[in-house]
Design a protein around this nucleic acid. Structure first.
Lengths: 186, 186
DNA sequence: TCCATATGAGACAGTTATGTCTCATATGAG
DNA sequence: CTCATATGAGACATAACTGTCTCATATGGA
């Protein structure tokens, strides 16, 4: 019997391939009848909203687990750097599952998700700003730019793995060093 | 009177905001009747296909204008670096207009566009490989990864400008140095 | 002015997805 | 075994979009 979580997992997997999949398709993908799908999620919007909520949950959990706030206020360069590494690794792990949420646009439609997303961005940017203040990250760009750069590299990472251009096991190293040191030769 | 190009421009602008906009909405956005829109583009697929073709045209034109092939085969480090700078700047200029094509998935549906896209990627990757061979770009990552990284940073750039986090006039510098030198402090 | 052409408004049928509903069946606890 | 519950199949009405068509009108050149 497919649980609510099973359905969400299948929907995520399928929406990664085809973001416009219909409820009927998503039901089939989850091995569930269309009626059952509607019993769990009253409308398509409900389903997407829950998917959005869960991806924000994961994002928030990563910030918590890496103790981004603690690192940001610590003023300790090494701790901040370790936090950045940890955070990026967690983001990469999640981007496998929630990749489509990165680029899909339905998230921008829900005001509550958007507001929550803004708050998470804020927390993350505080970490970047602290990293700039302690000499870990360059200070000649806006801290928010660094957030966008991380986001862009997550998109790049997802595509690179999907196309088989970077092995999953190398991903953390490649993305982290691309973010910190860039693509220029040493 | 709205020309075919005017309609395409309006459609691009509008699809950037709402990738799922209907033909009726796109017609209104272009200040044109729905019938007229269908006279120019027999189907929605036709419209999207032409949009995809034009974005690939721009991409190809950038590779041509920067003489990516010539630089790649020249073996001249300075020329390759200059070409990279030029190319990135051109990509950034285009990403304003064709931004939605970066992340939207309809492009992947059309085989001919996909094949053409693959050929352009190939040309671009040859440049990255040449840059690695001449010590411009780091050689410890796959050249294709560098292509993905550029793509990701273009996505980041679009979002950063849209959110007002980076001024358009600073974009070239910020993105180029993020790509080459990364976000780590010097 | 006259006429060819392009346009906008809108009707129309066909298709697809949505959300609700019913009913027969399967499953699992007691 | 019995029964309550969850499920799958599918009917149904509704809504939205698509692509085609007609017709009245506007525009611009001869």
């Amino acid at each position: 019997m497919a649980s609510r979580d099973d359905i969400l997992a299948a929907a995520t997997r399928h929406l990664n391939v085809d973001p416009r999949a219909s409820m009927a398709v998503l039901a089939t993908a989850a091995g569930v009848g269309r009626a059952t799908l509607h019993r769990h999620f009253a409308s398509r919007e409900d389903l997407l909203h829950e998917l959005g909520t869960r991806s924000l949950d994961r994002w928030e959990a990563s910030l918590d687990a890496a103790d981004a706030d603690g690192a940001a206020t610590s003023g300790d360069p090494e701790r901040i750097l370790a936090c950045l590494r940890d955070l990026l690794s967690r983001f990469l792990a999640d981007s496998d599952d929630f990749g489509f949420a990165l680029t899909d646009s339905y998230l921008l439609g829900a005001d509550d998700l958007l507001a929550r997303s803004d708050r998470l961005v804020e927390r993350e940017v505080l970490l970047y700003a602290a990293a700039q203040a302690t000499g870990i990250l360059r200070a000649d760009v806006p801290p928010r730019w660094l957030g966008h750069a991380v986001y862009g590299l997550l998109v790049a990472a997802r595509e690179a793995v999907r196309d088989g251009d970077v092995a999953r096991r190398d991903l953390d190293t490649v993305v982290l060093s691309q973010f910190l040191e860039g693509g220029g030769a040493r």
